[in-house]
Write a protein that binds this DNA or RNA. Structure first.
Ligand SMILES: [Zn+2]
Ligand SMILES: [Zn+2]
Ligand SMILES: [Zn+2]
Ligand SMILES: [Zn+2]
Lengths: 143, 143
DNA sequence: TCCAATTGTGCAATTAGTTGCATGTGCATA
DNA sequence: TATGCACATGCAACTAATTGCACAATTGGA
């Protein structure tokens, strides 16, 4: 079922639906939220043990360029990937407790508008991470 | 002259002003804009050939934690460092031509205010990179 | 001044991610 | 169905950055 879905998605992007790419995309589709390259690798290896980690990274790079997925550093050791949907969202990451909160893309629209107005710059903000202090951690010294 | 400056800065942060740290800080102070770890390394090595690259990274991490410098990925192979001044600025990076433009921190103040209003989240945005298309590159297919 | 505790450094090993190159595969065309 | 070409993959080498550990330097207190 997701096999057909991922094939369709790849074709719609003009990418060849190879078995490796379909499995990579399925791993991302099946993941409830953010997923790292290593976890994708392990998931794909169960079905296709011969796959190489560089194929994972190259496919992720391709999907990112086509804005099919987002690639974001949320401050954990490795970068996280997520399927990009119509409704974009972004994250606030607490530097103190590590909590990850979510906010809607409309919070960024005024910024996009002002950069376009001021510089004719068209921002492409797929999935942002903004670091700071959450409500619980303000006033604590452990910054 | 900058030797005294860097020593003062380190002491004001509560950090020991070791020769390595002073030279690292001076390399950043002397750099007109953004500088990468490797360039700092080479500059410091001229005065202190024995220094190890991990000392560079550890010192940079320390300075970042104290908000003395910013650490930003502007899409070049390695991360760039810059002295943080009172007047903060950020950058727009063109995905097409690679141009790096600058904008003032006040463009981000409405976003900071709305995140605080909406989530009581205190964003700490030292030095941002926003990717997109510059005025010259809009309408070009090479995205 | 001496000593112990704390902090900083060098070194080597490790991790995450990238790249060049030779081989393999998918797909259009005949 | 066969052939050729562009694209995709595996592999090994590489780069940027991080970490564990032993030793070195600095500090503050006896
Ligand atoms: Zn997300
Ligand atoms: Zn928190
Ligand atoms: Zn800058
Ligand atoms: Zn441009």
């Amino acid at each position: 079922m997701t096999r057909a879905e991922s094939e369709t998605l790849l074709r719609s992007l003009g990418l060849r639906p190879t078995p490796q790419r379909m499995l990579i995309l399925q791993a991302i589709l099946n993941s409830p939220g953010h997923i790292c390259a290593e976890d994708i690798y392990e998931q794909v290896r169960e079905e296709y043990p011969h796959i190489n980690i560089s194929t994972i990274y190259r496919t992720l790079e391709l999907l990112k360029e086509h804005h099919a997925i987002s690639v974001t550093d949320l401050g954990q050791g490795s970068v996280l990937y997520e399927l990009l949907k119509e409704e974009r969202h972004h994250h606030m990451v607490c530097l103190c407790c590590g909590k990850i909160l979510e906010f809607d893309h409309r919070f960024l629209e005024p910024l996009e508008a002002s950069l376009e107005e001021g510089y004719r710059f068209k921002a492409q903000i797929d999935h942002f991470a903004i670091f700071g202090l959450c409500a619980d951690c303000q006033g604590e010294e452990d910054d």
